[in-house]
């Protein structure tokens, strides 16, 4: 497994994939900074407002899109050069190949989340927020957003493995990400929609008291974990049987 991990690193280290992890936090930082007028100095909960503003675009759009892009990129190396054949004819178990691909998606997303947190802190410090940094809230938000990507990452990996095209899984991802704007309004469907889960988990509930945001964190976490297990097992089951 460790060997697999190090081999995958060889393929990844000099690619554009790293640049992608930076884009969304950077944009979020710019948004946060430009919304300086929204934070009245000395206002209570200024960090929470900033998180709401910056997190909206990041979690509603970029986080789900990036999850799909990472999954597709990680499989692209294998699809284009006939890598699946070479890789799977080596003495490696298919499960570990699949697991390592998944771990890398989550690792890249973790980097994205850390950078987002850094962007948020930088915005607050630059604008001179008077309130002390609410570490707990910020960490819960970043971690929650990351956990909420689990089902989507599992789903996108399955799709990316199945389709040898690079664009197809991405197109699917975009098509399903856009309706987020509507779906988060629905308390009934929102939590079950993998593309909306990162936003629901990440943005503070008090900030958006409508639609699916009213859900308790426990329910959301439950839905996320169950759908994660279902998607991961489905994709893994498909991959270990797949003829290449």
């Amino acid at each position: 497994m460790m060997r697999m991990f190090r081999s995958e690193w060889m393929k990844l280290r000099r690619t554009v994939i790293w640049a992608l992890a930076v884009i969304s936090p950077l944009l979020a930082g710019v948004t946060g900074f430009l919304s300086a007028g929204d934070y009245e100095n000395g206002q209570e909960g200024v960090w929470q407002i900033a998180l709401g503003i910056m997190g909206l675009l990041h979690a509603m759009l970029f986080l789900p899109l990036l999850t799909g892009v990472f999954a597709a990129l990680l499989c692209r190396f294998e699809h284009t050069g006939g890598g699946w054949k070479q890789l799977l004819a080596l003495p490696v178990s298919r499960s570990s190949v699949y697991a390592v691909k998944f771990i890398y998606i989550m690792l890249l997303l973790a980097i994205t989340q850390l950078l987002f947190l850094a962007a948020l802190l930088a915005t607050g410090l630059l604008l001179g927020f008077a309130e002390p940094i609410p570490w707990r809230m910020l960490l819960v938000s970043a971690l929650g957003g990351w956990l909420a990507c689990l089902p989507l990452a599992a789903l996108q990996l399955a799709v990316s493995v199945a389709w040898s095209s690079f664009a197809a899984p991405l197109a699917v991802n975009v098509i399903f990400t856009i309706p987020n704007i509507l779906i988060i309004n629905s308390a009934q469907y929102g939590p079950y929609y993998p593309w909306a889960q990162p936003l629901l988990a990440m943005v503070p509930r008090d900030e958006m008291g409508f639609g699916a945001f009213n859900l308790s964190p426990e329910t959301l976490l439950g839905v996320i974990l169950v759908s994660f297990v279902v998607f991961l097992l489905g994709g893994w089951g498909y991959f270990i049987r797949k003829a290449v």
Binding site: R3, S7, G81, Q86
Partner: peptide, 28 residues
């Protein structure tokens, strides 16, 4: 077993050396 199936497999953005290194790490 060493194999070459249909057409050679490689990671185009890597050098020949790095391609071999990626496989070497798996074979130990």
């Amino acid at each position: 077993v060493g194999s070459l199936v249909e057409y050679p497999s490689f990671y185009g953005h890597l050098t020949a050396y790095d391609n071999l290194e990626a496989v070497r790490r798996l074979l130990d």
